[in-house]
Design a protein around this nucleic acid. Structure first.
Length: 281
DNA sequence: ACGAGAACCTGTTTGC
DNA sequence: TGCAAACAGGTTCTCG
């Protein structure tokens, strides 16, 4: 489920547990997720000191004092939970990895579908890593703005929905936040990227930043409420405008819902798109 | 070269 | 009620 805001929420939740800690133990309970675990991962990381927990697109970056960097992707169903090591529950079927710190905490990675992955690289080789090298700019970074998006869209003939999901164009958007952003900007998901137009492209860029920031803020506040209770983070109920709302009236739309059918669900390149055909042109 | 579709997995929801 | 189909927030490969 995690898109950029959820990954950022997970990062905020696990950073205080990991940063400045020694990784006293690393328990890996199977050979692979989407790809094999690095064969030497446990030997290489056990006993190392963690410096920071960062993020690039939907990847978590756990940095170590010796310049090793662990890449973690949560896939569709990856979760992290925090436990006191002394009282951590018996690992369940999909609890694939435990990170145990000197400070007495266990960070547990759970992923039923196993679309997640972990890989190991170094600070020096990070930029050239195959999983990161082709990524577009961070949507919340300086590079991403109206100029950038307008220029990028002109070169693409695919539907705008597909263009925004392409991680090489801009990195970190997923199905939900693309739907939400297109709704807020009033752009039809079916419109070809190159036909979005300069003005709408610029609006879209600012709306994307807005939507992501709001989601991160919501995650931050839910993290505060949620964490001491369950130890789980990154999954919270959002108030989406269109995502998952097929058949409901379009929020804030003055058009005739009976006539327009409200929010529609269509399938684009195998994924659900939710939108209001009246408002989004 | 590009886009659509399938594949990778398991769990949950929906529909007959 | 029960079972099968559809569906799920991601990525990557194949095929036309």
């Amino acid at each position: 489920m995690p898109e950029l805001p959820e990954v950022e929420t997970v990062r905020c939740g696990i950073a205080p547990i990991l940063e400045g800690q020694t990784l006293t133990n690393l328990v890996v309970r199977r050979a692979n997720l989407r790809i094999p675990f690095p064969p030497n991962m446990v030997d290489r990381l056990k006993g190392q000191d963690i410096t920071t927990v960062g993020r690039r697109a939907k990847y978590l970056l756990v940095r170590f004092a010796n310049h090793d960097v662990l890449l973690i992707h949560l896939g569709m169903s990856g979760r992290m939970t925090i436990h006191d090591s002394a009282t951590a529950p018996e690992p369940g079927k999909h609890d694939h990895v435990d990170f145990v710190t000197k400070g007495g905490k266990t960070l547990r990675f759970n992923d039923p579908r196993r679309f997640g992955l972990m890989d190991l690289t170094t600070e020096e080789e990070l930029g050239a890593h195959r999983l990161l090298a082709e990524l577009g700019p961070e949507p919340l970074g300086n590079e991403f703005n109206g100029d950038f998006l307008a220029d990028a869209l002109v070169e693409r003939s695919q539907p705008i929905k597909a263009a925004l999901l392409d991680q090489t164009l801009v990195a970190g958007l997923g199905n939900i936040y693309v739907c939400e952003s297109l709704f807020r900007a009033g752009v039809s998901p079916r419109r070809k990227a190159r036909n979005v137009g300069d003005k709408k492209a610029r609006l879209l860029a600012s709306v994307i930043v807005e939507v992501l920031r709001e989601a991160i803020d919501a995650g931050g506040s839910s993290l505060k409420d949620h964490r001491q209770a369950s130890g789980e983070m990154g999954y919270f109920q959002h108030n989406f405008s269109v995502y998952g709302r097929e058949g409901e009236p379009c929020p804030g739309c003055t058009c005739d819902h009976e006539k327009s059918g409200g929010i529609q669900r269509i399938v684009q390149s195998g994924r659900s798109t939710f939108f209001c055909a009246e408002r989004q042109r």
